[in-house]
Design a protein around this nucleic acid. Structure first.
Length: 204
DNA sequence: ATATCGATTATCT
DNA sequence: GATAATCGATATG
């Protein structure tokens, strides 16, 4: 059970994605499934900047797919990729631009049995539950149809971002992963030393 | 331990 | 018609 969770104000997301990204590390992503609660601590994410960022989905303007990015901050942008996977972003704004944070990895906190079930994993394989954007979405049963456009700061929402007061000791900033444009910008943020960050590693 | 590759489809050009 | 903000499996040293 997580300690007391406090809402994050919408204004938190109404800032430069780079700033929001650093401060979003350590926050809790929570899914309510009826009586059950699934939750994890955000340990890795990437910032996408909007018009200035060739790697951003918003770089070429508003389309049916990315319209959430052009709406109010603190909302879920969910997209489908490689014919297989959903990925979750949080919209944020920077002087009216369409920024976002791609949530890339969680440290499982609550509802681990259910998340493992969603992932078709043994519950002891903790690291494999949500270490990667596609895995994370599968663990929390996030889909575009169900979740795209959802308000992540509303207490009414079944998908929310909350704070339990945790602050990472050290943050790592590296290049983003899996993109072909603007590959050198240091816009991937992770909690230093967390075993739940995506990427290579052998142990569970 | 690292490298490469195929899956599978919404979205955009 | 090509591409993609990934993953898991297989091959190779």
């Amino acid at each position: 059970m997580p300690s007391k969770l406090k809402p994050v104000p919408r204004s938190f997301f109404n800032r430069d994605p780079r700033l929001v990204g650093r401060e979003l590390l350590g926050k809790v992503l929570l899914r309510r499934e009826g009586h059950a609660t699934l939750a994890g601590r955000i340990v890795e994410l990437e910032a996408y900047l909007g018009a200035d960022d060739d790697a951003a989905h918003a770089a070429t303007g508003k389309t049916a797919r990315n319209e959430v990015l052009f709406g109010p901050p603190g909302h879920a942008y969910v997209y489908f990729i490689y014919g297989n996977h959903y990925c979750l972003n949080v919209s944020c704004l920077r002087a009216g631009d369409a920024g976002s944070l791609l949530i890339r990895a969680l440290e499982p906190i609550d509802g681990i049995e259910q998340m493992a079930l969603n992932r078709d994993l043994e519950p002891d394989k903790l690291r494999l539950i949500a270490s990667g954007p596609g895995r994370l979405a599968e663990a929390l049963a996030i889909t575009r149809m169900r979740d795209n456009g959802k308000d992540l700061v509303s207490p009414e929402s079944d998908l929310q971002i909350l704070s339990d007061g945790f602050k990472p000791e050290a943050i790592r900033e590296t290049a983003r992963i899996g993109i072909t444009k603007s590959i050198h910008l240091p816009l991937r943020f992770s909690i230093a030393g967390s075993p739940y960050v995506s990427g290579k590693r052998l142990a569970d």
